[in-house]
């Protein structure tokens, strides 16, 4: 009897907590469907009287399809490049006998815990010196190079792969590349799912880097386009259209999050790997 009661109480607590944490997002959805006058009414209403879908058209016109395409190029570019760079490196560090392994591992780990936002200025200078400002190369390559997380994640996974399988393939004369491609990779789907979801979300949500490196309209990504609507840099766009823009910006990450939830959370929890 006591457990039933306490379970009920706990349930109520959990539901209230879920509601409070999700409230800002629910507000975003509700606000995105209010008319320009309705969002500026006093006292505010919780739900729109009639949903104004036009807000989404206006937000799309403001953000533009090009900006959304840029965001996909940016995020997928980072994920792809990091895969290309980190998979072979991680594999070599895990499975190929090599005397530099320890040194490389140690030097990769040290800067991993420095948040990117704090090393922006020097990184900007290097990108500037390379002549990469306002280009996709400048947007993608310097960020893709910060792949210590990817290397550690994949290496950890490769280390746990059974050695016998690889040894057999090597004795049969398979090259290391072949072993990586045909044996290690097919077994690494969980690690790949984790990495791709975490890396995609991180890249899609980046703001400051694309803002300083490629602010020009041709390379602008969605968060750079959206942010001015929070600081009131555009008095012609009503907050409801801004919220519709926020919904649009969240759709891709929401889909990735829902589909990859299990692996994503594993990856985020992995930031605890020390």
């Amino acid at each position: 009897m006591r457990t039933v009661l306490s379970n009920t109480a706990r349930y109520v607590g959990i539901v209230i907590g879920a509601f409070v944490l999700a409230l800002p997002l629910l507000f975003m959805v509700s606000g995105s469907l209010k008319s320009a006058t309705e969002i500026n009414t006093f006292p505010p209403k919780l739900l729109p009287t009639t949903p104004v879908w036009q807000n989404f058209a206006d937000a799309w016109n403001y953000l533009t399809g090009g900006v959304i395409a840029n965001s996909f190029v940016f995020a997928i570019g980072i994920v792809g490049l990091q895969l290309i760079i980190s998979l072979p490196a991680a594999f070599a560090l895990a499975k190929i006998p090599f005397k530099w392994t320890g040194v490389i591992m140690a030097s990769l780990v040290i800067p991993m815990f420095i948040p990117g936002n704090l090393t922006l200025i020097p990184l900007f200078i290097v990108t500037f010196q390379l002549g990469w400002l306002n280009s996709f190369a400048g947007l993608i390559i310097p960020m893709a190079a910060q792949c210590a997380f990817a290397i550690l994640l994949f290496r950890q996974f490769f280390v746990s792969l059974p050695g016998g399988l690889i040894e057999a393939a090597r004795i049969d004369g398979a090259s290391w590349l072949r072993v990586l491609w045909s044996i290690a990779l097919p077994l690494s789907r969980p690690a790949l799912a984790t990495f791709c979801s975490v890396s995609f979300l991180t890249a899609w949500n980046m703001y400051i880097w694309p803002q300083i490196v490629a602010p020009d309209p041709a390379h602008r990504v969605i968060n750079v386009a959206l942010a001015p609507l929070a600081g009131g840099e555009n008095s012609l766009i009503s907050p409801s259209v801004g919220l519709a823009g926020a919904v649009i910006a969240m759709v891709p990450v929401l889909i990735v999050f829902i589909v990859f939830q299990k692996w994503y959370i594993k990856g985020v929890a992995g930031t605890g790997l020390e």
Partner: peptide
């Protein structure tokens, strides 16, 4: 502190 607050714009009708 927001110089371009859309809620305070004349065009918002408030």
């Amino acid at each position: 502190a927001n110089a371009n607050d859309p809620a305070l714009a004349f065009s918002a009708g408030n």
